[in-house]
Computed example of a mutant assay.
Amino acid sequence: MAQSGQLAGSTVSTYEVDTVLARMRALGASWPRTDGVAVFNQVYLTVTEEVDRSLDGGAFRDVRAAAALDVRFAERYLSAVDAAASGRRPAACWRPVFQYRRHPGVRPLQFALAGINAHIGHDLALAVVDTCRTLGCEPVELEGEFDRVGDLLVSLEERIREDLMPGPDLLQVADPLTHLLGSWSLERARDAAWSAARVLWGLRELPELAEEFRERMDAGVGLVGRCLLTPWR
């Protein structure tokens, strides 16, 4: 029987979170710091390390559920990396990030937010569905852990923007850049991801319709990503 406050059927442990962290650290060490995917990877590594500390520190009511969501979520990003590395097409939401990863006119903050856009706007909803299947539960049973992970992301977003925003010497670039990137909201993206997860779960008995919904969501997130990666020179 599951412990009080925990979902039964979990097969994901904090050990697998450590495995994900090790993979992201290895990827970061293999790419130049100027690589746009490396910029996002470092941001995501920072977030995942914070989640790992929160798992160890008792911030989550259900550690197994939170770890499962964290791992299923990370697997979506790592699958995109593997697809691009093998010459296959990653999901549409990730294609702009990989296409522009070496473009000299795209700023690090743009890569960070475009990656977050892809991961939250598309991958998070699918990760919720994946986690429900892993744990044999309904999305509502994950809502608490989903919100806690989302709160960590939001708390780190401002720091990410401050760390990666161009300095005063790039003021002419920064002004339109601030306008563009200020139009995207992590909180709104997170809310949309939760709604999309509930829709996808509700459509699980209608796979063709579910796939059509996912493809349109993927394409829409990819379009936003291309806008976020508008080169500035």
Score class of each variant (00 low, 15 high):
Ser4Trp: 12
Ala8Ile: 08
Thr11Ala: 11
Thr14Ser: 12
Tyr15Ser: 11
Glu16Gly: 03
Val20Glu: 09
Ala22Gly: 14
Ala22Thr: 12
Arg23Met: 03
Ala26His: 03
Leu27Tyr: 11
Trp31Val: 01
Pro32Gly: 13
Arg33His: 06
Thr34Leu: 10
Val37Met: 05
Asn41Trp: 06
Tyr44Pro: 07
Tyr44Ala: 14
Leu45Gly: 04
Val47Asp: 07
Glu50Ser: 12
Ser54Arg: 12
Leu55Asp: 05
Ala59Trp: 03
Arg61His: 12
Asp62Leu: 13
Asp62Ile: 13
Ala68Lys: 12
Val71Glu: 08
Arg72Gln: 09
Arg76Ser: 02
Tyr77Thr: 08
Asp82Glu: 15
Asp82Leu: 13
Gly87Gln: 15
Arg88Pro: 02
Arg89Ile: 00
Ala91Pro: 01
Arg95Asp: 05
Arg102Cys: 02
Pro104Phe: 07
Gly105Val: 04
Arg107Glu: 06
Leu109Asn: 00
Leu109Ser: 00
Gly115Lys: 13
Ile116Trp: 01
His119Lys: 02
His119Thr: 03
His119Phe: 02
Ile120Tyr: 08
Gly121Lys: 00
His122Ser: 07
Val128Gly: 09
Val129Leu: 05
Asp130Thr: 02
Thr131His: 04
Cys132Val: 06
Arg133Met: 04
Arg133Asn: 10
Thr134Pro: 02
Leu135Tyr: 08
Val140Ala: 11
Glu143His: 11
Glu143Met: 06
Asp147Met: 05
Arg148Gln: 14
Gly150Glu: 10
Ser155Gly: 08
Leu156Gln: 07
Glu157Thr: 07
Glu158Asn: 10
Leu164Thr: 01
Pro166Ser: 03
Asp169Lys: 09
Gln172Ser: 05
Val173Cys: 11
Ala174Ile: 02
Thr178Gln: 03
Thr178Ile: 00
Thr178Arg: 01
Leu180Ala: 02
Leu181Glu: 07
Ser183Cys: 01
Ser183Trp: 00
Trp184Phe: 10
Ser185Thr: 06
Leu186Ser: 04
Ala189Glu: 06
Ala189His: 09
Asp191Phe: 01
Ala192Lys: 13
Ala192Asn: 11
Ala193Asn: 05
Arg204Tyr: 05
Glu205Thr: 08
Glu205His: 06
Pro207Glu: 02
Glu208Pro: 00
Ala210Gly: 15
Ala210Ser: 15
Glu211Ala: 07
Glu215Lys: 14
Asp218Lys: 12
Asp218His: 15
Ala219Gln: 07
Val224Tyr: 01
Gly225His: 07
Pro231Ala: 10
Trp232Tyr: 13
